[in-house]
């Protein structure tokens, strides 16, 4: 922790790291969505892992250490493994041969263009000096845990119930003879 703080303490290093991680995130994101070399879901899943890991790097840059860890453990670990399991479970060879339709590309680009234009424009209109005060926040496990078990204890418990429900639901859905 001390070492990372020292590393991040300088003004140049974090900026460079940001650009590196941001570029990595976006590049891998593109490869998840539209890989020009392979349309296999497995490839997409692998690039999704990379995206998530580089995002964890961004989280670290934002001093959200706990979340960075969770991101890697839950996403890159559990979720992606789940994805890969399903991909293996389904025989998707035939799927790969299908082409992406022009209609999909056009509609996708239109909607993405609209959303990105509008949000970036809004971002550009943001008043300067919004982050005038130097960020002091440390997303340590202790601080987050304290908040989680005091102010947010009810949502926390609700979420745990949600996980239970999801588990029951998944078991039910996976039964062979679904009625």
């Amino acid at each position: 922790m001390e070492a990372i703080n020292n590393l991040l303490g300088g003004s140049m290093v974090p900026d460079v790291l940001f650009y590196v991680f941001a570029a990595l995130t976006l590049l891998c994101g593109v490869l998840v969505v539209a890989n020009p070399f392979s349309r296999s879901p497995v490839t997409s899943a692998m690039f999704l892992v990379l995206t998530i890991i580089s995002m964890a790097g961004l989280f670290v840059l934002l001093h959200a250490f706990f979340l960075a860890a969770v991101q890697i453990i839950v996403y890159a670990g559990a979720v992606i493994v789940l994805f890969l399991f399903v991909i293996m479970l389904l025989d998707l060879k035939e799927e790969q041969r299908r082409k992406i339709k022009l209609f999909g590309i056009v509609t996708g680009l239109i909607s993405v263009g609209a959303i990105v234009t509008i949000s970036l424009k809004a971002l550009g209109a943001m008043p300067p000096g919004a982050e005038a005060t130097a960020p002091q926040l440390e997303g340590g496990t202790a601080a987050l845990g304290k908040l989680l078990f005091t102010q947010y204890v009810l949502p926390f418990e609700v979420v745990s119930v949600l996980l239970l429900v999801a588990m029951v639901g998944v078991i039910l859905l996976s039964k062979k003879d679904l009625k």
Partner: peptide, 9 residues
Amino acid sequence: ALGLLGVIM
């Protein structure tokens, strides 16, 4: 936006 593009495309 990338995610959205993927969802639609």
